[in-house]
Design a protein around this nucleic acid. Structure first.
Length: 445
RNA sequence: UCCACAAUAGCUCAAUGGCAGAGCAUUCGGCUGUUAACCGAAGGGUUCCUGGUUCAAGUCCAGGUUGUGGAGCCA
């Protein structure tokens, strides 16, 4: 049997006879000529069968091939401009075919389907071109994020998923029975990151987080993956430097490695090519002024109402979108009101009503992809904030103790992987950015 | 939790209160450059559920279920 190749490497085998092991993606026939598009996970190639050129037994098998049947094919690789494929420009002149298993009535046809139908069959939908391309881009994004941090002296330190107490507010936690005790699924690794940072200087964690928010929007998942760096002796301004360089690096890596995938999902690549550092930085105060100016200019009463904002309120989705639309790159908004942010954020010197926090808002309506801040490093101030929020001080003893043994100013942020993937891919909904989305009304398959 | 909209063939959708329809998919036949092929034929229905109005309900009314989009909350 000829050498088994990956379709991704097909360019190296022009003129040679090869073996392909994969699945039938689609088939069209025209009498004595049949085209079978075969995918093998690494790519997709069309195999051409002419009746007079191959064994009649194999021609009959080709005629009866069904979508998603698993097949082993041998044939000669040819360069041909007419062949679309992935990579494009190559085809295989089919010589033999073996059906490993015949798939009958594969439900996802190359036609339109509704969201519910596809999500119920997510385990199969993953094979479709667009979904395949999105998950490849997701993998590039995750690798680029980790490469960037690893190359910049960060250490990956894992944080627990089962936790004894809330990271932030308790209303959005999933509780589990821990041998008779109550425990929670982590909604952030940040508090542990701060301890790990004291040991390693610059750390990050990367893993799933869980939020029992009853959110039903295009940018929320119940289970999502978050990358959380934490840096000792770091100011808010230095934190923004890291964020913008990291995001710019990720976009550049996707452009370098996944251009065909971006084309396959129809992404407007010009919108990504402009995304180089630095990004604009505006204060919450300025952002509110910009939104209020936009409010005055808006004519549509419905849109106008959505833009309405008073100083002190957090931004909703419409406001984030409107703000981001004022820039063609992501934009930093810093110094949010302390009242709308987490208890551990450092107040601004001389202006305790605002804090040393920063969100990075993505363009094109994708909203907040990063939230970060300087953390309170004074033990007494931290205790005061824990009390003010009505949290049980006993749950935070170890966290307070970090401030008693060599405390330092420090800062960190959390980047939502799926929102980043949705933005870079230009997707209408976050559910396609993760293999098996956990949504308000869905935990199957 | 709130607001809006929707549910009809395997899928995507039509159908003025009056015979349940189309395209695709499937099966069969034809076709040597297709890639959402094309041409011809066939099979395929608990119109989401419960109740009501009416001579007559897929269509109107009430309640429910499920889904979609949005808000709030957040990454």
């Amino acid at each position: 049997m000829a050498t088994t190749i990956r379709i991704a490497d097909i360019a190296n085998y022009v003129g040679q006879e090869v073996t392909l092991k994969g699945w039938v993606y689609a088939k069209t026939g025209k009498g004595r000529l049949h085209f079978v598009r075969v995918r093998d996970g690494s790519g997709q190639v069309q195999c051409v069968a002419f009746k007079k050129e191959i064994d009649p037994e194999y021609f009959e098998i080709v005629k009866g091939l069904t979508q998603e049947s698993s097949v082993i094919i041998t044939g000669e690789v040819r360069a041909d401009e007419r062949a679309k494929g992935f990579p494009a420009g190559y085809e295989i002149g089919l010589k033999t075919v073996e059906v490993v298993q015949e798939a009958v009535d594969y439900p996802i046809t190359p036609k339109e389907h509704g969201t519910e139908f596809l999500m119920d069959r997510r385990h199969l939908w993953l094979r479709s071109n667009q979904q395949w391309a999105i998950l490849r881009i997701r993998a590039t994004i995750i690798k680029a994020l980790r490469d960037f941090l690893d190359n910049d002296g960060f250490l990956l330190v894992d944080t627990p998923i089962i936790t004894p107490a809330a990271g932030e507010e308790t209303t959005t936690l999933f509780s589990i029975d821990y041998f008779g005790d109550e425990a929670y699924l982590a909604q952030t690794g940040q508090l542990y990151n701060e301890a790990n940072m004291m040991a390693h200087g610059k750390v990050y964690c990367f893993g799933p987080t869980f939020r029992a928010e009853k959110s039903k929007t295009r940018r929320h998942l119940i289970e999502f993956w978050m990358l959380e760096p934490e840096i000792a002796y770091c100011s808010l301004e230095e934190l923004m430097d890291v964020e913008e360089q990291m995001v710019a690096y990720v976009v550049q890596q996707v452009l370098e490695k996944n251009r065909p995938e971006l084309e396959a999902i129809g992404r407007d690549i010009s919108k990504l090519e402009v995304l180089t550092a630095p990004f604009a930085r505006i204060s919450y105060d300025d952002a509110v002024e910009k939104l209020q100016a936009a409010y005055e200019k808006e004519k549509d009463p419905e849109q106008k109402e959505l833009l309405k904002i008073e100083w002190g309120e957090d931004f909703g989705s419409p406001q984030e979108t409107a703000l981001a639309e004022m820039f063609d790159k992501p934009v930093f908004v810093y110094h949010y009101p302390s009242a709308v942010k987490a208890f551990y954020m450092q107040p601004v010197d001389g202006r305790p009503e605002v804090c040393r926090s920063v969100d990075l808002l993505a363009p094109e309506g994708y909203g907040e992809i990063i939230g970060g801040s300087e953390r309170i490093y004074d033990a007494d101030l931290l205790i005061q904030k824990i009390d003010e929020h009505g949290f049980d001080r006993a749950n935070y003893e170890w966290y307070i103790e970090l401030r008693q043994y060599g405390t330092v100013p420090h800062a960190g942020f959390g980047l939502g992987i799926e929102r980043t993937v949705a933005w870079i891919c230009g997707l209408a909904h976050i559910r396609e950015t993760i293999p098996y989305a956990r949504l308000l009304n869905r935990k199957y398959p």
